[in-house]
Design a protein around this nucleic acid. Sequence first.
DNA 1: GGGATCGCTTAAAGCGCTTTAAGTGCTGGT
DNA 2: ACCAGCACTTAAAGCGCTTTAAGCGATCCC
Lengths: 345, 345
Amino acid sequence: MDELGSAAPAGAGGVTPRPRLEDVAARVGLSTASVSLVLRGVPGPSERTRQRVLKAAAELGYRPDRTASALASKRSRLLGVMIDVHSAFQAELVEHLHTAAEEVGYDLVLSTQTRTRDESTAVETLLAFRCEALILIGPVAPASVLADLDRQAPVVSLGRRITGAALDVVRSADDDGVGQIVDHLVSLGHRAIVYVDGGKGVIATDRRRGYRAAMRRHGLDGQIRILHGDLTEESGDKVGRQLLDDGDLPTAVVTFNDRSAIGMLTALRGAEVDVPGDVSVVGYDDDTLSRLACFDLTTVSQEAEEQARQAVLAVVERLDQGRTEPREIVLAPSLVVRGTTAPPR
Amino acid sequence: MDELGSAAPAGAGGVTPRPRLEDVAARVGLSTASVSLVLRGVPGPSERTRQRVLKAAAELGYRPDRTASALASKRSRLLGVMIDVHSAFQAELVEHLHTAAEEVGYDLVLSTQTRTRDESTAVETLLAFRCEALILIGPVAPASVLADLDRQAPVVSLGRRITGAALDVVRSADDDGVGQIVDHLVSLGHRAIVYVDGGKGVIATDRRRGYRAAMRRHGLDGQIRILHGDLTEESGDKVGRQLLDDGDLPTAVVTFNDRSAIGMLTALRGAEVDVPGDVSVVGYDDDTLSRLACFDLTTVSQEAEEQARQAVLAVVERLDQGRTEPREIVLAPSLVVRGTTAPPR
DNA sequence: GGGATCGCTTAAAGCGCTTTAAGTGCTGGT
DNA sequence: ACCAGCACTTAAAGCGCTTTAAGCGATCCC
């Protein structure tokens, strides 16, 4: 941190007034206009001026006031990101969004949705900050609401497919991801491959469809078997016990996500079933969890970094390059083979 | 979302200009000053005026521009929060900070520190937003740097003890937490209680000290045994294997955190050791992980909600009530008994 | 009736910055 | 000499809001 040269009273009580543009202007005997130009890197000022201004600004420890410059320029260079703070995957996305945004000169404002703070509240907050665009991670609002929002600021839906509304979407091909899993299992020799479903969301629908399509592609129509489940460990565990009780174990189980897969793993191993010896288990998301040595789960990665990069790119195209027609960017997920898959006995 | 009555061209290209204070003032034939007063709930305007303004504002879908009001009032009502986006515990804290801040009329700006974005960059960003105070979660900067920072805006260190610098600290009594664990184990009949360390951070030091003190308190000085470890599952696993190899199993293992405990659990169970039958295992943090059915780990909760509440309270005391002398608030953690502890055989 | 008082409303001056049109002082061409 | 053109620099007008001092009737009291 800089040592400030000012004589203002420091400490908890006294407020050290921040240097303003005017202060650095006074120090070099120029107008605030010139200083502003220099500091923003706008061409015009002479080299000599430039140097002096930069020096003075550094000496004073000047840092521009974003609120003032946003007000004046009518550009906040702020991207609003709505995130569910509980999801490890979303946290990872945010990190990549940060770096991607920084590269193109934008900053992020995060708004979290929690139990007490729903999606629309989160979005309101973002708009009040004058965000120029919104990146919504897995929004649940209906397409029409999102389309309305898009009227106020460009919206990109990250991770969720949106049908029938003209807005940007960046997502991963969930059906393809599950397809890759099935391909992998089939190539290992599996035929009895069960799928544990993830509810009725858009994403769950895509993954389920991917499973069905892949099974058919391999001529395993007769083996298609979908069990009801949701996003939690409990559900995986429950479905696992059910399979055990029925005494009707498949040779491989594919679950909606890693959490469900871990529940399944617990249930099977708890019943002395060898994974992957007796049964192979595959998850989805490449969660931090799945990487743990005690699980070492075969899964599918959603390429968080690339998704983030594309989302920021989409925003920049609309904000800075004037694109108006919506785009949908679908990335290919990639299989991560770990220790829970093996040829059937 | 509201339907706006404006005829501005909507859609991706056209910008719908937001209604301003002036617009709602014009609609009711009043000055912007009156409207501002009403909207901020300042006493003065008559009831009739109040009603009319509120109605007009609602009809126009007016929402104040935070940047403008921050600039004018010189109060942003923004609290800067620095967070490591990867930590589940920190994410939980943020959620509680959000609700606590909202109750006292503040909003949060989050700045994440990541591999590519260090603590000081994160803090710079927060200051540029004109945050009135900073809540730093587990800051690593030296006390002197934090003290300097405190000169620009009140700083609260959340979770980390700070010695020798005059700033607010809100944290949990880590030594006491580990003490409670040892008490619990001793009351179950354990004597051979091993502690797996968590490195050389401030927090690790406190927990280690808590272990030592508690063992001594129970007259188990001779049983004190501290194994080297860190914050990861891998380390727990490694130390676990080591214990197994040495053939020198204690009846109970206490680890620095839940992650390490889970590694330990994996190692022990992988070697057919019954937990809690043969060995009891206890973690620390009450992570989401520890609650999973497959672990069901006995651990210690850090009372995230209360910590958040106290941090916001501390900030408000300084910002709105003029407190200047620093305070340290130490909360008592609480033991969460689950399924990995039992009397020794 | 006149001044003090009260209740409500508002004009106007910023907040710290950006931006545009209008300077300023040069050089160089004629 | 004179003007055009150039390279910089700056005065001044906001951005959308807050805030203070002043304004303005109406009421009250002596």
